[in-house]
Design a protein around this nucleic acid. Sequence first.
DNA 1: AGAGGTGCCTCTGAAGATACTCCTATCTT
Length: 575
Amino acid sequence: MKTPMTKEKMVQVLEEIAFLLEIKGENFFKVRAFQNAARILEGHPSDAGTLIETGELEKLKGIGKGTIAEIVHDLYEKGKSKGYEELRKGFPASLFELFKIPGFGAKRIKAVYEKLAVQSVEGLESAAQNGRLAKLEGFGEKLQDRILANIRQMKKSEGRFLIDVATNQAGKLLAYLKKQKGIERIEIAGSLRRCKEIVKDIDILVSAKNPQAIHEAFIQYPETASVIAHGETKSSIALKSGMNCDLRTVSLREFPCALYYFTGSKEHNVAVRTIAKKKGIKINEYGLFKGKRLIPCASEAEIFERVGLHYIPPEVRENTGEIEWAAENNFPDLIEEKNIRGVFHVHSTYSDGVASLEEMIRSAQEKGYEYVGISDHSQSAKYAGGLEEKRLYRQWKEIDQLQKRFKIRIFKGIESDILRDGSLDYPEPILSQFDFVIGSVHSRFNLPEAEMTERLCRAMENKYTTFLGHLTGRLLLSREGYALNMERVIQAAKQTGAAIELNAQPQRLELDWRFCQTAKREGVGISIHPDAHAVSHMNYVTYGIGIARKGWLEKENVTNTMNLNAMEKFLKKRK
DNA sequence: AGAGGTGCCTCTGAAGATACTCCTATCTT
């Protein structure tokens, strides 16, 4: 039996359909209907099978009973869709890559495809290099240069993956391997275990009774695109997604030292080995030795114990001061996900979310939170359906109604655009009615550093600004953040009492962990927010926790570890 | 294409800036 198509793949197909319709110059709303459906499906907490078998699919607003539902059914039941295949005729798969180039949309893709027979990024690059692109109607020298630069930038991201992509793929591979017989211990190691925001490959460590069979099963993994190496202790594969995975097998006895070694970072390992050496201890991936004698270690914790260090959790093993700290005996008690008592920065269908207020609130309550802060976009964010006064009142009214039915405390807030001059997006009489305000920059990204810094500082000086949202506006692997004097911004937060958001969306993950320590030292509060646009995004908090731990944050440093009572006081005090 | 309300039609994510080329495509979630 064929395994049913996964939801991720379906989402991709719907996005491709939208793309093809756009290239064909179809009705804008038709295109958007497919984009919308893709977002809805992606953000829904259930998998495709459940949605189809329960009949819930057709009830989803934006999917309906017509074409889109039919395509999803076909994809699920037959693994293919006639309509989609028809549409794809004559368009090479490599054409989809072009959409990832910033500054390259449907119109321009259509133009180069039809007039220059460009079918891929490679083709576009050579057309730009030999100047053919600039000669095309509607193009020119400058655009050609910009596109070349963007292609170069994009190529830098090749082979690098966001943490959620890596986590999901690693999870599936791990589940597959765990089904094999003879597994004793299995763990993810490497940068993924250290919770790096960008991951290059997945490292898996296994001890098993029958390592050969595990290596064999590993290279047979259905998602394997090619086998790079297949040995007795190490195998490497490239997944269809382009991601590489390494599997190493060790004995059960070696497992803790191997796990420690393969978790890294290299710099951390070198530094700890140096300390160990001074005590006459040798550590390598095979074990911990005093002279020639093997000292058995049943866990990583024992390794640290042996070298006289406090246990250092994987996330902070970057040799950025954690070892000195571990030697001093006042190692921080890093925040854990269970410490989070509520979240802010939750969107709904009032602006650009795909789930209703009720669905988002329910999901927060089901996660066991004491409070949830709703913050849709403000009126200037037209592209995202930002709320002007009238719809704001309607939302407040609905929240009041919902509050009667839900136990969780609902805070009324807004993700307010920070306008060019640093002011917020509503007049004071409206601002004063919010329980909280997240100030975020969503436009005019290319101001000079001094001006942008001033803009953010001014926003924080506004007494209604509770949190400063996604600090630099970066999108990992696709867009640099805007220029900013981080030290000054953190100082301004300290002086004004505004908290800085740690946006847990995998593409953002900022405040960057490298600056969390600075904020912590200055006593600036950090608030971990999912920036959820769908129910499934509520889980982003987990990544935020990983980054917060990586930045050495403790419970006390994180604003939304406050209980409801303390949070209510905090929000009132800010005004 | 889907939703909503009516029976086949209308409306839908709504603007403003930017960077380019020459009047428009793209980006902002």
